[in-house]
Design a protein around this nucleic acid. Sequence first.
DNA 1: ATACCTGCAAAGGGTTTGCATCAGG
DNA 2: CCTGATGCAAACCCTTTGCAGGTAT
Lengths: 148, 148
Amino acid sequence: MSDDDARSVVKQVFTEYLVTHALRKTPERFAILDEIYSREGHFDIELLFNYMKNKNYRVSRATLYNTIELLIDCKLVTRHKFGRNQAQYEKTYRSGHHDHLIDTRSGRIIEFSDPRINDIIKSACEDNSFILHHYALYVYGEQEKGNH
Amino acid sequence: MSDDDARSVVKQVFTEYLVTHALRKTPERFAILDEIYSREGHFDIELLFNYMKNKNYRVSRATLYNTIELLIDCKLVTRHKFGRNQAQYEKTYRSGHHDHLIDTRSGRIIEFSDPRINDIIKSACEDNSFILHHYALYVYGEQEKGNH
DNA sequence: ATACCTGCAAAGGGTTTGCATCAGG
DNA sequence: CCTGATGCAAACCCTTTGCAGGTAT
């Protein structure tokens, strides 16, 4: 599946979500989705705001906050609170679930994934009659110098 | 080990930390530590502030924020950012590591622990030459009604 | 035509900071 | 004594909210 294909699938998912919830398919909402899916890595609202401003696409911060909430709800975007600061976001579709090592000195974030985590989550949910929505595993520490 | 013993051990740990880092052993710092370790469950700064005010122990919020930072650094307290709101804290000494299921509807938090998580963290750190400080696993979802 | 949505700016709320005062070493 | 710590309040910053005007349906 090409990148363009992925972006059109994502657009479909969002469209269906909007229809199902009787929400309007405004151009801003799709422009935001497209901007997010055209980039890699983490971002915060301010960064997204600047990305779009630099393309001369005018969106207000209010709309960004509003739209990202919808995207989280339909699982196209994930929100993280790594440090003490503002929220970080990332696209989720076709990125596969992964977790994060956070270097507390540099703030750098390394992604990793381990298939065993799923089993643990599953049993924790079963044990507590819990219906999973999503999960996040954050590992804080420091990366040794010189090896990377 | 009794509760009182635990509290005195914790006080020792904190004292050593302060000495090592050439920080002052002020009465406020120990009063805050003691207040935290005399209670169970999660708390935020505002709650802690009120706890102490109600005991007629005057501490400023600034000191609470400052001190809790030290307690986190010496691993006597853990900070969580479950939702979008303010930080939640909990004492860590002798509570054993545990993780959290967060009911996104009610906000209720259930603790669980799974020994397998440790292996996963360890290998993730090894693979990335990462020196672990701490980690947190958050599982978001909804608890089924009627079973609890 | 009717809500809903957007943009703007102001309000909000948790956390941090500046500064004068206090007190531990 | 000297420097770090405290308390207070103001500043900060990210996020939310209110309102007037615009637009999807």
